[in-house]
Design a protein around this nucleic acid. Structure first.
Lengths: 338, 338
DNA sequence: GTGAAAGCGCTAACAC
DNA sequence: GTGTTAGCGCTTTCAC
């Protein structure tokens, strides 16, 4: 085992408090004393036991982040931004996967690693508002993602309906009329894609176009393979959309791959818009048009919110904060001649 | 503040030890007692304070993982695998970024969050073997990645020279003769790409081809944008390779994008091989041929190694473990007529 | 089977 | 300025 404060104090012939003062850079220590203690520290290779400090202070400097999975670049990029934002406040990030499963999300929301995490940032998929009602853990919780919860917690998310409408408007503006939506969840019980799908409906209606439900394709998950499968399924049942709005970039990329495989050209035959602005879309052979949520802002706001509550503003009223987004038009959509 | 063992004991009218026994599922507790205690626990909403437990037991159940950055899908996918592998052993993962900077890597290797992490998995870029010499932290350290260190720590990495040779052999086997290498680091002081570059050299030599250093293109980083820049630089200075072997998939994807932009066709004009097998490459419009390290195995072995040392085999002799890899041929390379 | 008490290593009153 | 001391909440001998 490593040396403790006591060991250092003994070796240096001073009290524990003095060593503690040196370790914590207390201002009022005489230089001579400091040097003497430092020598003992070096000799013993002393390292403060943070666990003990945590117990004593009731704080750990650790924030937990729970995302469905890092395999999705959106969450990976977001997690990276959270790690960096947390570091700026001297916090470290404890990471966990929920796989988008309700049970795991509930588990995490209810005191994941109680007392070792100071706060929790959770990006739920299937969690219900009711699941949050009984939450007893007193670590600040910040919710991310598309779902809106009627619960007293901070929520950081762009305006998904409006963002989806912007994407669809981009397509209608280019003259597209049969615009498919890819990524409604197959099991309709819980519908995380809800808001973006609503945006699709609202905007089509606003443009005087029919909301043809046969142009809505369900997916099992949110990956590239799901996008390809949904696109193929749509085409297989004889639908022929002239544009596709996908729930996220991965689904869009899978759809583009499926289209290309079938000899359909993007954007000439079918235009494609995604959602997330993962870096992958910028470099795909057909660069992907997408809705770009401000991930840096999301991460920053989430961390700041946790930190603020931790730093003496625990009674901050829970807010629903909407960071900005932009539509980034790239090669996968194009102006139509007509 | 939450209730403590003492509070529960008081309410239940029993001793602390009894409550502790219940909380820890000790076998020898009478059912009646257990029920009584459980009632008090529920009433108070008691949750064990893990920080205190950690201090007492000297273990936290937390493993740290330090990677350059999650923005690179290889590290994101690897991190995801580590999180899952750790969870299987009831460990949670504390995540940190090094940005591939030596100072940060040194900092992490020398007692990052001392005593709060039980072990450390580090994927260094610029760290030197000498930096590890003075390491005093006694948390088990496992090194990942391309570099080989002459240091007494477990290292989990595929055979990079052999893997690179396999990739180049794939190209020579298809008849390519002017094979460029993209991704040597510009500053030659530290050369993380060392082994893959050596594999390139060795295989070309073995095939009786010249190692033309003008076909080696440096990059500033390891991203898509770096790959595009390097490819453009190579073409700008008049080189005309018939194939490209990139340090990693991102560089390869950037290179493909640059080639396409200049009207060169992949694989007809230039074949491209990457390294990492990130999922992105499988779904790009021109699916990327790549070397696929077994990420699951890397993550599993790294975690198992840490756990094994923690579980009473601390004197395990440090090993250099080489998980498997495969070459996955996709559309970005193709057999040549000649 | 259950209780009493010591102590993990640290911080923060409070004395001197 | 520096020393003394009392816990933070838990686990764990050791009695009973």
């Amino acid at each position: 085992m490593g040396a403790s404060l006591k060991d250092v104090a003994q070796l240096a012939g001073v009290s524990i408090k003095t060593v503690s003062n040196v370790v914590n850079n207390y201002p009022h220590v005489t230089p001579g004393m400091r040097a003497k203690v430092q020598r003992a520290i070096d000799e013993l290779g002393y390292r403060p036991n943070l666990t003990a400090r945590h117990l004593r202070k009731g704080r750990t400097g650790i924030i937990a982040l729970a995302v469905p999975e890092l395999g999705n670049p959106y969450f990976a990029e977001l997690a990276g931004a959270v790690v960096d934002a947390a570091a700026r406040h001297d916090y470290t990030v404890l990471l966990d996967h929920t796989a988008g499963e309700r049970q795991k999300e509930i588990l995490v929301s209810q005191g994941f690693r109680a007392h070792v995490i100071d706060g929790l940032i959770l990006s739920p998929i299937e969690l219900e508002a009711a699941d949050l009602l009984g939450r007893t853990d007193d670590a600040p919780l910040v919710l991310l993602g598309e779902r809106e919860y009627d619960a007293p917690y901070d929520q950081i998310a762009i305006d998904n309906v409006s963002a989806a409408r912007t994407a669809v408007r981009h397509l209608t503006g280019l003259g597209h009329r049969r615009i498919a939506f890819l990524g409604a969840r197959r099991e309709s019980a819980r519908q995380p894609a809800h808001l973006r799908l609503r945006g699709w409906r609202e905007e089509l209606t606003a443009a005087g176009l029919p909301c043809d439900d046969s142009l809505v394709a369900a997916t099992d998950g949110y990956g590239r393979v799901d996008g390809a499968a949904a696109m193929n399924a749509l085409l297989d049942r004889g639908e022929r959309p002239d544009a596709v709005f996908a729930y996220n970039d991965l689904i869009a990329i899978g759809a583009m791959r499926a289209l290309t495989d079938r000899g359909l050209r993007v954007p000439d035959d079918v235009a494609v818009v995604g959602f997330d602005d993962i870096e992958e879309g910028r470099f795909s052979t057909i660069a992907l048009t997408t809705v770009s949520p401000d991930k840096q802002a999301i991460a920053r706001l989430a961390v700041e919110r946790v930190v603020a509550r931790l730093a003496g503003a625990p009674d901050l009223v829970p807010e629903r904060i909407q960071p900005g987004y932009t539509l980034v038009a790239r090669e996968s959509t194009a102006r139509r001649p007509g």
